[in-house]
Design a binder for these strands. Structure first.
Lengths: 128, 128
DNA sequence: CTCTTTGTACGAGTTCAATCGTACTGTGTG
DNA sequence: CACACAGTACGATTGAACTCGTACAAAGAG
């Protein structure tokens, strides 16, 4: 069966294989522990929705630091939101030296909630 | 019980046509006004997730009153949650005499966020 | 009319999350 | 070593949302 595509023809978000020998991920829920309520709550915040969407659309196989997102918020606020995403099971974070890089757990989320990431990728930020 | 999974991965939750001459719906957002953040926030509450899921799986072409759901909460709490669902654009409510009946806006939600309702239908409530 | 039923409106208490300043830890560089 | 840098931990404040009691409104039955 071919990968799922959304109604408007947007290509489905696909998972890339991870190279071995990476730093271990920070504490996160296992795939089967990821709960829909928690994921939806995490994604109901516009800033976190922006973060996940940007990761999905622009990340090109690399993890990214907080700074890469260009978010105009103090560091302590960003820590809060990245932690919320990780603890909900949406992102994985790894420590590279003094940087902490994030990527979306695409394979896990597609397995658990097929189609959800496509909705995030198609999302249009409010205002403007 | 209707099957919820299809061979092609398209939304399995189907919209039924509405008969004419119904009471007018209570105030609700238009399709294009429905926002993903708001919908996700509304669905991040386990009780509301239960309500929507039950409507999707057991509603058989009829609208339902608050009492039909068998929720062990005071009436004022139920009013709160049904209002939240309606104002998010997830459900439509109509006044039938002294009853206020709800159903999910399946067509609108499938058009706006394809696949989302399938995730709700497949959800497993916690603690079981 | 009264009584019952279904649900709302309002308000209070409580809980929880978002925001962010400050202080701090750990890592790499010169 | 000292210093810069990425990010955390902690705590305070704020505001929103959940919960629910009480009082009230509208509709139908008798």
């Amino acid at each position: 069966m071919t990968p799922r595509t959304t109604e408007n023809g947007h290509p489905a978000i696909k998972a890339l294989p991870e190279p071995p020998d990476l730093p271990p991920p920070l504490p996160e829920p296992a795939v089967e522990e990821i709960r829909l309520e928690t994921v939806l709550a995490a994604l109901s915040d516009p800033l976190r929705l922006r973060i996940v969407r940007k990761l999905l659309l622009e990340s090109e196989q690399f993890d990214h630091t907080c700074g890469w997102f260009g978010l105009d918020r103090p560091k302590s606020s960003l820590t809060h939101h990245f932690k919320a995403l990780r603890e909900a099971g949406i992102t994985r974070q790894r420590q590279y030296g003094l940087e902490r890089r994030s990527h979306v757990r695409v394979a896990d989320l597609n397995a658990r909630f097929p189609g959800l990431l496509d909705l995030v990728a198609d999302w249009t930020p409010p205002g403007r």
